[in-house]
Write a protein that binds this DNA or RNA. Structure first.
Lengths: 185, 185
DNA sequence: TCGTAGGTATACTGGTCTGTGAATCTGACG
DNA sequence: CGTCAGATTCACAGACCAGTATACCTACGA
């Protein structure tokens, strides 16, 4: 990707997330990234494609943050709930909820690439939870993983509201992991 | 509200939810409800106001459905998770996630009436969970209520994705209620 | 030295959007 | 019969939007 292309994606990430995809026009993105609209179209071809790149790039950044947090855990049981810790720091700069759920809300057409990207992201997180739970020796890793995903998404979805759900979600997630690794079970 | 006004709101409920607020123009709503655009503006003044009415009306319908389900429960412990049962039947005709979360995604301006309506809705559900938990004699009703809310919103948010999270969420919700009313605690 | 890729500058097309103006119609109710 | 609110008809303003056309500039590598 050319330097101009990179600047465009950076601007798109900020504007699309903060103001919504439909509300942000290509002219604004071009102006914001100090680039001509012609360049934007030479690089990405269409707004829809730029939206797809924006989501894919954001997904990539988020996954590497999660991976970092997971790898920074000594205890395998602690690692299972590492994505909740990522969410805590991630939320400091991202207070408009989940970019992928939001994108689905704005782009109802199921054939839009955004739908595949969003589905892939959630599926990736579910699989990660499964793998981490299995590695930590949790009972019924499949159910536990789905439970953790629901808690994660619930905390993320309610983030734009004045409810402060993350601490409670994280606590419950840890309790579930603890319970499924308890010697009694 | 005049008969025409009611038809407009009905059309708006369907179109806004299924296709997104920004993607649906007032012309489409007018055509869909068999009414002139002039009438629409005479009744509601602006699209933003119509959006607010749409959300308020949907909220009203949903609350009465929840109340019905709650009132249909014999066991107070069963009543605590009644909103999850409502969500099950509600989801049969509403597969695009939460209309309020979606509205926040599309309307980033915090001064838009949609924000207040959405916040009120989630706050109402949280309070309901608290009341029901207290009535059922649950320990730590406040924390339990927040946990249930997160599960509810998580199931709702992941609904547009191919994940089938509702059964697992409902099971966990019931288990949490059971645990907090156990004689041991 | 010359071609080419990446970028700039600017004007423009065709369409859609929210919202308004002005005149007319219709039916219920006093 | 007269009034008036609700509704229709239809044209139109003004803004914005995605995407295109054309011409030009610049740096770099064969």
């Amino acid at each position: 990707m050319t330097p101009a292309g990179r600047r465009i994606v950076t601007a798109a990430e900020e504007l699309f997330y903060d103001r919504g995809i439909t509300s942000v026009g290509v002219d604004l993105i071009a102006e914001y990234s100090g680039v001509t609209k012609r360049t934007l179209y030479n690089q990405f071809g269409s707004k829809d494609h730029l939206v797809a790149v924006y989501l894919a790039e954001r997904d990539k950044r988020w996954r590497s943050r999660v991976r970092e947090t997971v790898d920074g855990c000594d205890d395998p049981a602690e690692a299972v709930t590492a994505p909740f810790e990522t969410l805590r720091t991630w939320s400091e700069a991202n207070t408009r909820g989940c970019a992928f759920i939001n994108a689905l809300a704005e782009l109802p057409d199921p054939s839009h690439p955004a739908h595949r990207i969003a589905a892939d992201q959630k599926h990736w997180l579910l699989t990660l939870f499964k793998e981490l739970a299995t590695a930590a020796g949790c009972a019924d890793a499949d159910t536990l993983a789905t439970r953790l995903l629901v808690l994660h998404e619930g905390a993320l979805a309610t983030q734009p509201l004045p409810l402060d759900t993350l601490p409670v979600s994280t606590d419950l997630a840890r309790a579930l992991v603890r319970a499924s690794t308890a010697p009694g079970r």
